[in-house]
């Protein structure tokens, strides 16, 4: 079980600590938390308990009361062993990067991870997330593998290589905080932000009204005729005036028209900056794909022949996203 939380919280911002951490972790698809990868410190509540311990000791000294000492040292001992309990809640967990879903710049990319419990212990209250981004809290059952998604904000097209993930737990008592890092070897493609250029439609040289192209039957746009009702026809299709007149159900038929093939050519946009052209192309590809219009694309060094469909859309958008981007 997992659910989203606002933030993982902010960890020690000490510069040297961060540098030290960065030198200790490398990118990998999977990491298992063990004594080398788990950091643990008393939390603020733990420091508070230490203060309480001192006050209780003073009480014991002033009233010469051994049982007060007992309570005080019990609290101190609990504070100590709790560190191991908290460590145990993280120890042995495996975190694996599964895949990333592409998105458009400015949207959030979705990363999928899998977290696995191997040791047959329940692991409650584990927070996973990026320090400045999305975070979730999970409760793992024994031997459970859980898939979680984490979203990450994007700014520019290209590859989004996320920074390290933080996994924190304060279970059981909140007196200590154990955490570890995972630098996932995963990257998301960020498509350019779609943005039509002002004179976009004119420049393509195609007028949708001029040529409607081949008819695609059983569409939903244009009315083509009336036929008798067949079971399975939707309510929207029923021609009610006919029903009122004759008492027989009749359905209206529609057709769609295949749009005239569209061609996106880089050379038409020589005056514009590269980014604006990429944004424009992206917007057009989205539109073509939505309207089921075949499109082809020519950008420097790459040419995509006329085609339709999801795979074509991904290919062309990826090419736009990675135009001029060095392979990391």
């Amino acid at each position: 079980m997992w659910r989203r939380i606002k933030s993982i919280g902010v960890l020690p911002p000490r510069r040297y600590f961060q540098q030290w951490i960065a030198s200790r972790i490398d990118r990998r698809t999977e990491t298992q938390f063990n004594q080398r990868r788990i950091y643990i410190v008393p939390s603020k509540a733990g420091l508070g308990l230490l203060l309480l311990f001192s006050i209780t000791i003073l009480l014991g000294i002033n009233f010469q009361n051994n049982l007060v000492f007992m309570v005080a040292f019990w609290l101190l001992a609990m504070l100590t062993i709790n560190i191991l309990f908290t460590y145990r809640n993280l120890s042995g967990l495996t975190l694996r990067a599964i895949h990333a879903e592409p998105c458009f710049a400015g949207e959030k990319a979705l990363f999928w991870f899998e977290i696995t419990e191997h040791q047959g212990r329940e692991r409650p209250s584990i927070h996973v997330g990026w320090e400045q981004q999305d975070a979730v809290v999970i409760n793992l059952k024994a031997h459970e593998t859980l898939r979680i998604s984490l979203s990450h904000g994007t700014q520019a097209r290209g590859w989004l290589i996320p920074e390290r993930l933080t996994v924190i737990t304060r279970f059981p008592t909140g007196l200590a905080r154990a955490w570890g890092y995972f630098l996932p070897d995963v990257k998301a493609i960020v498509y350019p932000k779609p943005q039509l250029l002002p004179d976009g439609s004119a420049q393509t040289g195609a007028d949708p009204n001029q040529s409607k192209g081949r008819e695609i039957p059983r569409g939903s746009h244009d009315f083509s005729g009336i036929r008798s009702y067949r079971s399975g026809d939707s309510m929207k299709q029923i021609h009610w005036p006919q029903f009122a007149k004759t008492g027989h159900l009749a359905s209206r038929e529609f057709v769609d028209y295949e749009q005239a093939a569209q061609w996106l050519d880089w050379t038409h946009w020589q005056g514009q900056s590269d980014e604006r052209v990429l944004a424009h192309f992206t917007a057009r590809v989205i539109g073509f794909h939505r309207d089921n219009t075949p499109w082809g694309m020519q950008i420097p060094d790459q040419r995509f022949e006329m085609d339709v469909g999801e795979a074509h859309r991904v290919q062309t958008l990826t090419a736009l996203a990675l135009y001029g981007v060095k392979v990391p």
Binding site: I57, L58, I61, N62, F63, Q64, N66, F69, M70, A72, F73, W74, L76, A77, M78, T80, I81, N82, F85, P172, T173
Partner: peptide
């Protein structure tokens, strides 16, 4: 938690110096 912290508690209890009231 409490049972496992008993040994440390007992040692602290036994060896903490008994001071006169402050």
């Amino acid at each position: 938690l409490l049972v496992l912290s008993l040994p440390l508690m007992i040692v602290g209890y036994l060896f903490f110096p008994r001071l006169p009231p402050l």
